Simulated assay, not measured.
Amino acid sequence: MSLFDSVDHYYARYRPRLPDHVVRLLAGELAGAETPRLLDLGAGTGQVALSMLAVLPPTARMDLVDQDEGMLRTALDELRPRLGGRTATVHAVPAEKFAPAQPHYRVDLITCCRAFHWMDRAAVPAMADRVGAPQAVVAIMGDGSLRTHSAEWTVALRGLIQSHLGEDRRAGATGTCREPGRRYEDDLADSAFSDIVEHRISFSRAWTPLSVLGCLRSISFARPDLLADHAGFEERAEDLLHQHAQDAVLHEEGVFTVLLARRPGTTR
């Protein structure tokens, strides 16, 4: 069983998509490409692809890579009614093992959102070098999680989770997840994509208590099978969230970090 089995519905419905400013930043990297191709790694249920659709021309091609076939099926279900002339192909393989069938395949933009920490962080840029067009850009991005944000309600929620599961960040059925000892910038600097620019984009996000609970069901550190009394946990979490909500809304202010990396000496 993979880490995110049986959470496709919650992942698709409650995981936030990209902020508009991030979408525009990525779209700028595709400007001028006649038939732009986007390769999304750790695609989940298609949050990046769905966010990008509005700025992609009808000629655009998208490849979604994820180890979880169920999530990719859900991604296609979400994408198909919205594609227009665009195409979306899914690949149920680890990111570093992606190998296009087309002999002259070249991708313009390679994205990885909230997922790079789960991957082989040396092998993924090497794969990107093999499939990337000469001016390809790699975008490693993320905005933390409900566990790391510093709003009053997220701090209280984290305390409740830790009271059930301990202070270590849980991952999977029995393990824990340690923070990486190496920055993503260092991984990219050691790759072909060593020309790196960091963008920090502020965002505001609104949640309801129920949407927070739905999102928690999709997240590795608080998924239902970690909690012996999940129903009791959700009842306490809902009470806590209602106490912190203002007019039934929970506000989150955060920063979306985007690392844009390209091969030295190349510009679009």
Rank of each mutant, 00 (worst) to 15 (best):
S145R: 00
L226V: 02
G28R: 09
M141I: 04
A156E: 02
S211V: 00
D247Y: 09
R263S: 04
C177W: 07
V55F: 10
T45I: 03
I219T: 12
E238P: 05
T257N: 00
E167Q: 11
Q67C: 11
G172F: 09
G70C: 03
G159N: 14
L39D: 13
H244M: 05
S2D: 15
L109K: 12
M62R: 11
P94F: 05
T174V: 11
G132V: 02
T59H: 13
S211N: 07
R205V: 05
S218C: 03
T148H: 11
R268H: 11
Q246S: 13
S211G: 01
E198L: 09
D239Y: 11
G175E: 02
C113S: 12
F203C: 04
S163P: 10
R73F: 00
V138D: 04
E167T: 13
R236N: 08
D5T: 03
L188C: 01
R80K: 15
R223I: 00
E152L: 15
D5W: 01
V22A: 15
Q135I: 04
D63Q: 11
L18S: 06
E152A: 15
R37L: 12
I161K: 02
G46A: 02
V23I: 15
A49C: 11
A126D: 10
F98T: 03
H164M: 10
D66E: 05
E238D: 15
D195S: 13
A173I: 08
A231K: 09
A115I: 10
A171I: 09
Q102D: 15
R158V: 08
A151K: 00
L26T: 06
H230A: 11
L210M: 13
Y11F: 13
P81L: 04
R17I: 00
R236E: 09
P16R: 06
P94W: 05
V124H: 02
L160Y: 10
D108W: 00
L3K: 12
G181S: 02
F193Q: 09
E185R: 12
T35A: 15
L50W: 00
L160E: 00
H149T: 12
A95F: 07
L3C: 01
A245F: 04
Q67R: 05
T89L: 07
D8P: 01
D40M: 04
R170G: 03
T35M: 09
P134D: 12
D195W: 01
L83F: 00
L227I: 15
L30H: 14
E253D: 14
G254D: 04
L188P: 00
E29F: 07
